[in-house]
Design a protein around this nucleic acid. Sequence first.
DNA 1: CAGCATCCGCTTTGATACTG
DNA 2: CAGTATCAAAGCGGATGCTG
Lengths: 223, 223
Amino acid sequence: VVGDRWTLLIVRELLLRGPARYSDLQHGLPGIATNLLASRLRELERSGVVSREEATPPVATALFRLTPRGEALEPIVLQLGRWGAPFLAQAPQSDAFRSHWLALPLGHLLQDHTPDRPGITIELRTGDQPLTLDVGAGAVHVRPGAASRPDAVLSGPPRPLLAVLTGKLSLAAAEGAGVRYDGDRALLLRVQPGPEGLAEGSRRGSGATARRRSPRGTRRRRS
Amino acid sequence: VVGDRWTLLIVRELLLRGPARYSDLQHGLPGIATNLLASRLRELERSGVVSREEATPPVATALFRLTPRGEALEPIVLQLGRWGAPFLAQAPQSDAFRSHWLALPLGHLLQDHTPDRPGITIELRTGDQPLTLDVGAGAVHVRPGAASRPDAVLSGPPRPLLAVLTGKLSLAAAEGAGVRYDGDRALLLRVQPGPEGLAEGSRRGSGATARRRSPRGTRRRRS
DNA sequence: CAGCATCCGCTTTGATACTG
DNA sequence: CAGTATCAAAGCGGATGCTG
């Protein structure tokens, strides 16, 4: 059901986007043939993982969304991402990359170490599109798009930027790799994962209704 | 790395067999082309998931085993099995089945409700090969092969037999489907999962050194 | 026999063009 | 925007052959 080529990647795309249009999915899945996307969506619909929703008359676009059965795949997708993260280091530069792919793993990897402080916003500029971290109340929410008035901005190539965020690389060292940071250093420290955060078996089930959060890493096919 | 056809199934096979010979894998993966098995094993070795071990001179056979990185895939394989279990009900009878595929999920699904009682052995006769449940000290261990002197024997076609084991079907009702049980009914009750055992989010991390145990369900390609 | 490599017909995929 | 249609290339399943 989810073992065919592209299928789990389509699920991941829907997990981090929520309901999406056909062309959104196409953009998030660089390299997929359009007939395959159509075919996979049909199969996923038939097996009850995805539901297609013809939008209301004023809007002219159909939406694809995960059913509860589809959302139940989230922990699996997250674990696969975590398992595969070490392989990212060897991934060729030519691999496709979309910044929103970071949303799922970052949401689980980053923490809010000072939940009592007022919330802050950090903007990430990397890849094709900015990413916004909303930090506060002990949680970090990641969403695609630019922040309106960010408290800090971190920009640079994906790899070193990620290394800085996870604390594996100091800002000073990362500057040589093109990473720039504009803001209070304390804000970075607030969200960086502790040493356990990077360990293999860490799990931080916070709220009872917690969803949309992940460990680390992301993966993609050749191109 | 593990997204190609057959790859995760090879990993599952190694998870539940431990170190295995080429031909063991072939038997556990009905339908795989021999060139594909060879090719996948090579790729898995290259990516550090599997290690090949030329046996010591007296023995003439090579062994394939999972590296720690490969064993780290166990929770993912288990969760995929659990997620896919509901689809088993709709699986065509023509699907291939090997009884040892049940070992992983059964080990996690079944429980020992009376850990203080002396250990018992239940033999499962279904599919191509018997399966032995070793019950005792609060745990259920599943291994392929017949039991020497089983305290009970449950036999019949895979589907209804599984339904009886999980308590979804009464013995009386299952007899019509060809299920036979020879032994004390209390032994069955000792291992059957509680109502939470079948629920979506159940997790029973028992011993600290617990491994080789799983939730439920199993899946296979068409044939 | 275990552990592959080779060949062959068929299916699936990727790329592109086209359409309501 | 949301697909369908078409076609070449790659991957797969099955059979067979080879080698220690």
